[in-house]
Design a protein around this nucleic acid. Sequence first.
DNA 1: ATTATATTGTTGCAATTGCAACAAATTAAA
DNA 2: TTTAATTTGTTGCAATTGCAACAATATAAT
Lengths: 207, 207
Amino acid sequence: MNPFYNINSDYKSKLLKELEAQTYEFSKNEEILKKIKNRNYIGIILNGTIQIIKTDYNGNRTIIEELIENDIFGTKISSLSNNEYTITTKDKTKIIIIDYEQLIKVNNQSTYYNQFIKNLLEIIINSVNDKNDRIEILTKKTIRNKLLEYFRIISTKNKSKNIYLPFTFTDLADYLAIDRSAMTRELKYLKEEGFIEIKNKRITLLY
Amino acid sequence: MNPFYNINSDYKSKLLKELEAQTYEFSKNEEILKKIKNRNYIGIILNGTIQIIKTDYNGNRTIIEELIENDIFGTKISSLSNNEYTITTKDKTKIIIIDYEQLIKVNNQSTYYNQFIKNLLEIIINSVNDKNDRIEILTKKTIRNKLLEYFRIISTKNKSKNIYLPFTFTDLADYLAIDRSAMTRELKYLKEEGFIEIKNKRITLLY
DNA sequence: ATTATATTGTTGCAATTGCAACAAATTAAA
DNA sequence: TTTAATTTGTTGCAATTGCAACAATATAAT
């Protein structure tokens, strides 16, 4: 869903001006937004891809989420107040930053403002779904069950037995919060037992 | 935050009527809402406590979340379309159910409606925070680190070294998605090593 | 107050996992 | 196209964990 759905471009400009929204552009593999960490903000991705990455004191890297065009993120939405987190672009990326207090506290009764709030509500409700999926996976106790749950969710979402990994296997292990080599081992067993087939980044479910 | 913040009781009634909201009352330990599972809804807890509980095919029970007055839940917000999930009351509980499509699709430009949407937005943004915390914990690899992360989050939230468990140890194990007996063992080690002190449901951090 | 139910504590053991340390293969950069 | 960097595959081994099966407490119900 587009955050500016049902808002024409004149009103969109007006809205962004009223909210004192800032537009930023970043190139590939840039770590962004280190500066505004102490403010409470909501960000909207106009185009490109970002990853929210966590690196703990041991150096363990975990991909918290990968976001694309029209996804939103922000201090409250993505645990970004914690400074173990970084936001990194995967492509050339353009974003908009809106101050959260400004967004909520402003008393604007215009149609375009109300429509915008409603759009944000829909987007966030959908993003909560993704977090629930992640929790669903992480609560599985074995590596095998985490993998199968991950496959099930993607397969259901795309109505296909073919799963195209949106990132590397290394990243997948981070996402599932498991050891990479142990994951590779388990994938091998799943192949040997005839549950799946793997060709590069495409995994096919045979059940 | 109250979902009806800044909406007086006349407008509140009007709003709920326009949205065809349903009010339900349940007694303690009732499993609720089995009937409306195929509709997409948002629920608001007026008073009481509910738990969203998941029981998988192995019979493993996991508390997904515990919600109280003014919290909201719903199909998209809480993975409730999956029928491994149940909602159970912990106390006498009163809730309101609003049809999601009705809420979003209706074209109502009244102030109270817009205020309500805005309130829901704020509530959901805050609830996303809780899910992030849960993910934070679940991505820790050892039982010890899961426990310490859980303690850290509660302690930070309440600005206190004393943590009062909001549920039983059995439930805590479910919440952390770990084996209960293994958790008890790890808590014993943490006590022996002088990191924590436990008295009934109060855990004191000694570091 | 007695009984029934639920929670907590404990422990041995097998299974699973993370870790470390590589080699092989793939992808990106110079 | 050669070199560098990253990703993938593999395996032994030690550490962690889940599981099962209880006993001991604590809480709730009659």
